[in-house]
């Protein structure tokens, strides 16, 4: 152990340290999941072994979360079927009827609950429906 400081002792490279820390912050900012608030983290999705993850992300797509007990929400805002129908109808009027609707159904939810959402989607004039699952395909 050395005592005291000599003139040749290397100092802490503060500028380089700040550079690295800023790079890390930029990395986290860029990769931060901005959709964290629009998906319901209480939902446990089913596993898809063969279907690859979705790459085309339509900015106007509607994500409907469907819990195991049948409760539905969009961006964690609970909705009744009539409210969902109104929202989807307004979306189709604004952006056209080819907007995809993604149903994030819990793996334990029954099909009759998914069917209820699909019927509402059809009544609102939309027809592109997708069921979300966690992809295990490479």
């Amino acid at each position: 152990m050395r005592k005291g400081k000599s003139e040749n002792e290397p100092g802490c490279p503060v500028a380089a340290l700040i550079d690295v820390v800023f790079l890390l912050i930029v990395f986290f900012l860029v990769t931060m999941n901005m959709e964290k608030e629009v998906v319901d983290r209480t939902i446990e999705l089913a596993q898809a072994e063969e279907t690859k993850p979705e790459e085309d992300k339509n900015p106007h797509r509607v994500i409907v979360n469907l819990r195991e007990d049948g409760d539905m929400n969009i961006a964690n805002n609970p909705l009744t079927p009539s409210q969902l129908k109104m929202l989807l109808y307004n979306t189709s009027q604004k952006y056209g009827n080819s907007i995809p609707v993604i149903i994030r159904a819990d793996r334990g939810a029954r099909f009759r609950q998914i069917d209820k959402v699909m019927k509402v989607v059809g009544e609102a004039g939309l027809y592109r429906v997708k069921i979300s699952a966690i992809s295990n395909a490479e």
Binding site: N33, R128, K130, A133, I134
Partner: peptide, 14 residues
């Protein structure tokens, strides 16, 4: 990020 697959189950288009 969790990789999510979307399985299309399209309804009849208008």
């Amino acid at each position: 990020p969790i990789p999510e697959a979307h399985l299309a189950v399209n309804l009849p288009s208008p």
